[in-house]
Amino acid sequence: MRLDGTVALVTGASSGIGEAAAVALAHQGAAVAVVARRRERLEELAARIGKDGGRVLVIEADVTDEAQARAAVERTASELGRIDTLVNNAGVMLLGPAQDAPVTEWQRMVEVNVLGLLYCAHAALPHLIRAADDGPRYVSDMVNISSVAGRIARSGSGVYNLTKHGVGAFSEALRQELTKKHVRISLIEPGAVETELAGHNRPEVLEGIRNTFGDVERMQPEDIADAIAYVVTRPRHVAINEVLIRPTEQER
């Protein structure tokens, strides 16, 4: 099922998985609202999608601010007419031992990975329910981007694990709540992907990440975007609840 006549909203769209997901959904025919803090990056992305004939709405917003998150959702629905697909992709990964960790890093991960996702989900739900009652597909999708860290806890990533396990729990509970309404809730759990995500860590943490994954051929953002596009283009009676994607060489 192509996405012609539908509208998708993608958070964290200024780079990495979010950027690739916006391109992939536009290629499937969706009008796309791209949301992030870096407007210049979003404008560049919009130009690329527009050059291929896609319809794009650029929204500069910080989803950790509830008012901005809600405004981004409402602006999407107002200017593009509806919301059929929400990709909750905005996230941060700040690793390191819990002992002596900067608590501000923990706060940032909870704000982005949990609260930002919840704000967008809450604001979008009425629109997704409405879209599932209407054409062209009579089904809508919320895709929450988690991580392998949402399945496996590791030393040195406790709070990141906490946030991503929480995303998984919320997604499954919401799935059960909305499944009869044909609002599909899907969880994507990537392993190592070549993005900017790890680059925000402290130097000593970055060294550890390089030691762990240095020899692994990482996935590209387009690999995850391909999975997102697959999930949201299934027929109405098919729901892909959870997708775990690792690089072939990643052990755990």
Rank of each mutant, 00 (worst) to 15 (best):
L178F: 03
K181D: 12
H182V: 05
V183Q: 10
R184L: 04
I185P: 07
S186M: 06
S186L: 01
S186N: 12
L187M: 14
L187H: 11
I188A: 09
E189L: 13
E189R: 11
G191W: 02
G191Y: 05
A192T: 02
V193E: 06
V193F: 00
V193M: 01
E194Q: 15
T195W: 02
T195P: 05
E196Y: 04
E196A: 10
E196N: 13
E196R: 08
E196P: 03
E196Q: 09
L197K: 11
A198D: 13
A198L: 10
G199I: 00
H200F: 12
N201C: 06
R202S: 15
R202Y: 07
P203K: 03
P203L: 04
E204G: 06
E204I: 02
V205N: 14
L206G: 13
E207L: 07
I209L: 14
R210Q: 14
R210I: 04
R210M: 11
N211Q: 15
N211R: 15
T212V: 11
T212L: 15
F213V: 14
G214W: 03
G214M: 04
D215W: 00
V216L: 10
E217G: 12
E217F: 01
E217W: 03
R218T: 07
M219L: 15
M219C: 13
Q220R: 14
Q220D: 13
P221L: 03
E222G: 14
D223I: 00
D223K: 05
A225N: 09
A225T: 03
A227F: 01
A229Q: 08
Y230K: 12
T233I: 02
R234C: 08
R234L: 02
R234F: 03
P235A: 09
R236C: 00
H237R: 13
H237T: 08
H237K: 13
H237M: 06
A239Q: 14
A239W: 07
I240E: 06
I240A: 11
N241A: 13
N241M: 12
E242Q: 14
E242F: 04
V243M: 15
V243G: 10
